[in-house]
């Protein structure tokens, strides 16, 4: 456990030295992640932690990997994907070209799920999926299209629950303990690092997914990120958040209506 004051100072120093601003992250979760990093790395005291982070860029990268949460599954929340399939895709189908942004894509499971959804709707060929994350290592992992075979059982069950129309195993080839996903899926994906805290919007999208990212931010930062996404969304575009996240009480709320009162999907009205 790092003393609160020490952690606050470290976050400020990191922000100045590396340009990664964690000062508006929810504290209880961040404290817990840092404590687990300290235990895992067998760091003895705060001075040692500070010294290693501030003097070694590679070590800082490792720190970012540990303190940002990268837990994800394919087709997580079956009902969410059903709502995408039944409500959002028919609208996207009317566009000549579809641009989708996965903000905070982690290791890419959600991007591949979306590509499968688009393929089954016959829309993949006219779609581009932009996938970004603050953490360079997970972006590279996502780009590889390789996933552990151990997770395929769960992913396959999720796919079926989400109303999948084919055989899930048809989308990958098993190679020892790795599942390599089909290139027809990854050829429609563009991966890059992007920091939601500091980087601006970078395109116009018809659908933005940012799920279980805002929960780690304080209210001000949530509002700032929502405004960035609002600027990146076409008129009448869709914004999808995690099941416990909301745009209620945010400055962009007025320009959006929730399309499905259970799933967290909003449509821009202007």
């Amino acid at each position: 456990m790092i003393a609160t004051e020490n952690l606050e100072n470290l976050l400020l120093e990191i922000s100045i030295r590396y340009g990664y601003d964690f000062t508006q992250y929810s504290r209880a979760s961040l404290q817990r992640r840092v404590a687990s990093f300290v235990a895992k790395e067998r760091i003895h005291n705060f001075a040692e932690l500070r010294h290693r982070i501030m003097n070694d860029g590679h070590y800082f990268t490792l720190f970012v990997e540990e303190v940002t949460v990268n837990v994800t599954e394919m087709f997580r929340d079956a009902n969410f994907y059903k709502a995408l399939r039944s409500t959002v895709l028919p609208v996207l189908a009317t566009y000549p070209f579809i641009r989708i942004w996965h903000a905070g894509c982690s290791t890419g499971e959600e991007v591949y799920s979306m590509a499968i959804l688009l393929k089954e709707a016959g829309l993949l060929q006219k779609s581009l999926l932009y996938a970004t994350d603050i953490n360079q290592t997970v972006v590279e992992k996502a780009r590889s299209g390789l996933f552990s075979m151990q997770t395929m059982q769960q992913n396959s069950e999720n796919y079926i629950k989400a109303g999948g129309q084919g055989e899930f195993s048809a989308y990958y080839s098993a190679n020892y303990n790795l599942a390599r996903f089909d290139e027809s899926l990854s050829s429609r994906m563009v991966f890059s690092t992007h920091n939601l805290v500091s980087d601006a919007s970078f395109n116009e999208f018809q659908l933005i997914l940012c799920r279980n990212v805002l929960i780690y931010f304080d209210k001000d930062l949530q509002n700032k990120v929502l405004e960035t996404m609002d600027k990146s969304l076409d008129s009448l575009g869709f914004l999808a958040l995690g099941s416990k996240e909301s745009i209620r009480f945010s400055p962009i709320d007025k320009q959006y209506i929730q399309i499905d009162n259970k799933e967290k999907i909003w449509r821009k009205t202007i």
Partner: peptide, 13 residues
């Protein structure tokens, strides 16, 4: 998670 300011945070880790 419980925060020191008396609010609740959620975490999907």
């Amino acid at each position: 998670l419980l925060e020191t300011d008396g609010s609740i945070s959620l975490d999907a880790s």
